[in-house]
Computed example of a mutant assay.
Amino acid sequence: MHRRLVTAAVVLLALPVTVLLAFHRSVPNVAGFGSVLDTAAPLLLLAVPVLILGAVVARTPTAVVAALVPLLVWGMLFGRAWLPKGDPGATQLRVASQNVNAANPDPAATADAVAATDADVVALVEVAEGLREPTAGTMAAHYAHHVRVSTVELWSRYPIVDYAPVDTALGWERALRAVVDTPEGEVAVYAVHLGSARPGVTATRDRSLRALADAVAADRAERLVVLGDLNTAVTDRVIAPLRDLVRDAQADAGRGPGATWPATLPVIRPDQIFYRGLVATASTVVRTPETDHRAVVAGFRFG
């Protein structure tokens, strides 16, 4: 009787986990719920150890199968992120992005850690007014070129020959597009902080994401990189209009999902590095002090 009850419990838990994994994108995106479910879907893997423990206790074939099916589905959907990948060629351009956090008590320490990644181009977002001076004091020691639009900044070792704000439909400017003149040629770089998203409240983020996708679609640059906090995971259905236009550095050259938030124990990746016209050679996440986001770093070569 005990084993039958445990088997039934394993099956009853495995069934909704498997269904949510397999069909999370079919759930209507009412009040942003589908978007939240898309973002959280990879975390359903956390149910698998519980299921396996139940199967060990039950010691029945039914419980074992029930425990393994969601693991198989998860692997088919998200397992590719853990496979070795990346281009073996030498890195010719390294970029980084960091959400500094408007409440950062020591932005200079955060900036110093980002500069230590040896990135050639760095996007900093959420650099509130009181953080600008200490941040600049650190970054200017490593980067000769700098532009800013509101709370978004771009720092570069190479000349920035042009820049302009990018309208992301927020009612105020929180993104920029710059042209960086690297030794290998010009690259258009977007530094972006999209609208915030909360469970049930995603309309502002969704609107700003569509506006960014429109800007990238209209961009004629041969080489292009999008850096910043997009408040959107790549598993979220609403990112599709942008993802159809660019490649994901973490997917192409990283290992694992590359989660960045919250910094102490990251479970999702709202901080992104997207690109086109280049070849990704590396992608990683770096723990930086005094902020609630980890930094993302990627390397590229010119094809």
Rank of each mutant, 00 (worst) to 15 (best):
T18D: 12
A116I: 00
A55R: 01
L51F: 10
V65T: 15
V50L: 15
L230G: 08
L46N: 02
L194M: 13
A169P: 01
D292Q: 11
T18F: 07
A109K: 04
P159A: 12
T110V: 06
I52K: 11
A47K: 00
A295V: 11
V225N: 04
P289C: 01
H293E: 11
T204W: 09
R4S: 01
A109Q: 05
A175F: 00
P165V: 14
L209M: 13
G200R: 06
V17N: 07
V57R: 13
T168M: 10
L21C: 10
A144Q: 12
Y190I: 11
G89I: 08
G303W: 10
L245T: 00
T281Y: 04
M1L: 05
P107K: 03
A55P: 06
P262K: 08
V179W: 02
V57A: 15
Y163P: 01
V279W: 03
F78W: 07
P42I: 03
V279T: 14
H24Y: 11
V187P: 01
R205M: 12
G299W: 04
A191H: 09
R174E: 12
V166L: 12
L46C: 07
D162H: 13
A253D: 10
L245E: 15
R4W: 10
A144K: 07
H142G: 03
A211S: 13
L154S: 07
L209E: 05
V279S: 11
V189P: 02
F274M: 07
D181K: 13
V201T: 12
R94E: 03
H293S: 09
V296K: 11
A213H: 05
V149I: 13
L278D: 01
A211C: 05
D38Q: 02
N104G: 09
A197V: 03
L43D: 04
D206H: 03
R94H: 10
R276F: 15
R207N: 08
T202G: 05
F23D: 05
L53E: 06
W155L: 06
M139R: 00
G200W: 09
A123K: 03
